[in-house]
Amino acid sequence: MNENRKYPFPEIDPDICKGCKLCIAACPKDVLVISEKLNSKGFHYSEYVGEGCIGCGNCYYTCPEPSAVTVYLKNYVPEEVS
């Protein structure tokens, strides 16, 4: 994970995403888009545009795939890498 990234932000596993677009519809800030690229399953996956996330968690809760979306919230403290 890029330690310079600004919290909050979503992390979408491009390979797990099935491209259903529910997260895109649920995002109040319209900061998720469907990728032009295909993943290994042949889905155009969802991806974060890189800024504008407010950490509402909508994408997480609307995503039917348990491990596709992770949202690092504003108060998230990265674990120390020892």
Binding site: I16, K18, L22, F43, Y61, E65, S67, A68
Partner: peptide, 18 residues
């Protein structure tokens, strides 16, 4: 083994997660 068998956009996955 890293993903469900559910179709894209299936409500089951959402409820499972909740």
């Amino acid at each position: 083994k890293d993903r469900t068998h559910y179709c894209p956009g299936c409500g089951h996955g959402i409820l499972h997660k909740l």
